[in-house]
Design a protein around this nucleic acid. Structure first.
Length: 578
DNA sequence: GTAGGGTTAG
């Protein structure tokens, strides 16, 4: 075949597959028919090809091969990347078009603005805004609307409003942009005023109101508006589900879900995450099983549900299913973060090493979330050095990363390092949360540092934090192990909430270590009441009786245990033989 | 212009 310009052009005017386009590309280059590349590019950009890294590379290749770069081709490319959520790329192409001295089209400008809005690139957005006047797009409703949306997303409602008020022509999208800005900033009153003023509200205007009230937790108002929507869209229904899930009214969410005329993956995933939040794993799985078109996000939702509800084996099983050839869904950063958390619960160090290898093989970036999950896994497996290496490589150390590392030091007996990390974190203006304190208290507990533990516990309110039952539990354990049983009891009595079994359990353990029968009985009575099916508490009390040589009580307790069907505890055998 | 999945808890 010796293609000439004529038949290549003929080919390019048809609708081609990506493969065909690539076959055409080589002869275009080798025959020096550079002007045809523009046609080629347009074919790619206007086609419905699903976005892939390969297509992106291809678009870049054509762009940079253009003999005479033209504003139109580059503008098309900017729009293409922005439409496919490749905001960084879209913005950097915009910078390049400027460097080439070309004048971007109005849709290139609005696409670049959209990109800046999505990635909250304030500086980039503002500098494009300055150029808007130079290029003469003051009257362009698309560009102006993109500006309104940019400032709305940046939370600068003053500027958003100024641009909006200055628009010679507005469409419903302009109105909706300013409306969603007020919603996001929580100004419901102004949002309501804008909503009432919109000359021709569309379904997006209604949905913004519904999801705004839903986000605030005002579900009555959200439902009231939802009922009045003339033509509900999928997003209207999903906004209601999302609102109910957010305020943990999962049954109400289910009611909406069941009543929907049509559902998409978003609806299913939100329901699954709703069940996940309230610990209803079975219902989540039932929905997952009903869903036929499973994508990576659906798998992620279900895997995360298992991981956060302490079912790590199921999480990993589902992950393995996902990788099977007949399913063949590529996991991404979020899948791996959940699965690493699951393997941390199992203490499976090998999985972490495999995951790091898998990520490098498949080009999955080790982001901060993933690195934090790995820090947790490696510290739980005792490899503190490997954890530190990851921790130091983080782009940004947040409260979760610090908490994971502090706890990691804590369970590895490094109380001094935990303290150091905590100070470092506070100095960096990162606010500790209740989990951070769990880690720190664990560190002191592990090292038996009563004074430090007390000080730490008491300093929680300096950061506006109320100690939870868990924190009391750790403190009781710390005081109890140190033999300060009176102080431990005093602490329990001071608790503003009902002490859970774990708190009494910590006291019971302390009593068995320090042979205190009377307190031990009190602690045990509470444990039995709160967790009647746990044999461990009975065994501890039995040991207390035995070491105090109170054999009658001991034997009585063993009988109760047998009645309850608890397995015989080894250690009573020598008693039997006496 | 509206919508979904991730990391820390003796």
């Amino acid at each position: 075949m010796n293609p000439n310009g004529q038949n290549l052009r003929f080919l390019l005017e048809k609708s081609l597959t990506l493969k065909q386009l690539k076959q055409v590309h080589a002869p275009i280059i080798s025959n020096g028919l550079h002007h045809l590349q523009i046609l080629l590019l347009r074919q790619v950009l206007h086609s419905d090809f699903t976005f892939s890294a390969a297509t992106a590379r291809y678009v870049h290749l054509i762009l940079h091969n253009l003999k005479n770069p033209d504003a139109f081709s580059w503008s098309c490319a900017i729009r293409y990347f922005s439409l496919h959520s490749q905001y960084e790329t879209a913005f950097s192409l915009y910078l390049k078009i400027k460097r080439l001295g070309l004048c971007p089209s109005s849709f290139a400008v609005s696409s670049a603005l959209r990109a800046c809005a999505r990635i909250l690139n304030e500086l980039g957005g503002i500098s494009i805004h300055a150029q808007v006047y130079k290029f003469g797009f003051c009257g362009c409703v698309y560009v102006q609307t993109a500006l309104v949306d940019l400032y709305s997303k940046l939370g600068d409602m003053k500027t958003a409003r100024k641009v909006f008020d200055g628009m010679p022509e507005k469409n419903v999208v302009s109105w909706n942009s300013v409306l969603s800005g007020y919603m996001k900033s929580g100004d419901m009153e102004e949002a309501q005023v804008v909503f009432d003023e919109i000359p021709n509200k569309d379904v997006v205007s209604w949905n913004s109101m519904v999801s705004g009230y839903a986000r605030m937790g005002n579900m009555d108002k959200a439902y009231f508006l939802f009922q009045q929507i003339p033509q509900r869209s999928l997003a209207s229904w999903n906004a209601m589900i999302s609102g109910y899930v957010e305020c943990e009214r999962v049954e109400s969410a289910r009611g909406i879900f069941d009543a929907m005329p049509l559902r998409n993956n978003v609806s299913w995933i939100m329901m699954i995450s709703g069940y996940s939040k309230c610990g209803n794993v079975e219902s989540a799985r039932q929905l997952f099983d009903q869903m036929r078109e499973r994508d990576v996000l659906l798998f992620n939702a279900m895997i995360a549900c298992y991981a956060r509800n302490s079912q790590p084996k199921e999480a990993i099983e589902l992950f393995n299913q996902m990788l099977k050839l007949e399913v063949n869904i590529q996991p991404n950063e979020m899948t791996l973060a959940s699965v690493i958390s699951a393997s941390s619960q199992l203490g499976d160090m090998k999985f972490g090493l495999w995951a790091e290898f898998y990520m490098s093989e498949h080009g999955i970036e080790l982001d901060d979330h993933l690195a934090t999950a790995l820090v947790d896994l490696y510290t739980k497996c005792g490899d503190i050095d490997r954890a530190y290496k990851l921790f130091h490589g983080l782009k940004k150390r947040d409260v979760v990363a610090y908490s994971a590392m502090i706890l990691g030091c804590g369970i590895n007996g490094k109380a001094v390092e935990a303290t150091k990390l905590f100070e470092e974190m506070v100095n960096a203006d990162i606010c500790p949360n209740v989990v951070t304190y769990t880690g720190l208290l664990t560190a002191y507990n592990h090292a038996g540092l009563v004074e430090e533990g007390y000080r730490c516990f008491n300093s929680m309110n300096e950061h506006g934090l109320e100690p939870s039952g868990d924190h009391y539990g750790i403190m009781v354990d710390l005081l109890g192990r140190a033999g300060q049983l009176d102080k431990a009891v005093e602490l329990i009595r001071s608790m503003p909430m009902q002490p859970q079994a774990g708190v009494w359990g910590a006291l019971l353990l302390a009593c068995s270590l320090h042979n205190n029968v009377e307190l031990g009985e009190t602690a045990a009575r509470n444990c039995f009441k709160l967790e009647p099916d746990k044999s461990g508490y009975y065994a501890l009390l039995a040991n207390i009786y035995a070491s105090a040589a109170r054999w009658d009580d001991e034997r009585r307790l063993r009988k109760v245990m047998e009645k309850k069907g608890f397995a015989k505890i080894p250690g009573c055998s020598w008693m039997d033989s006496m």
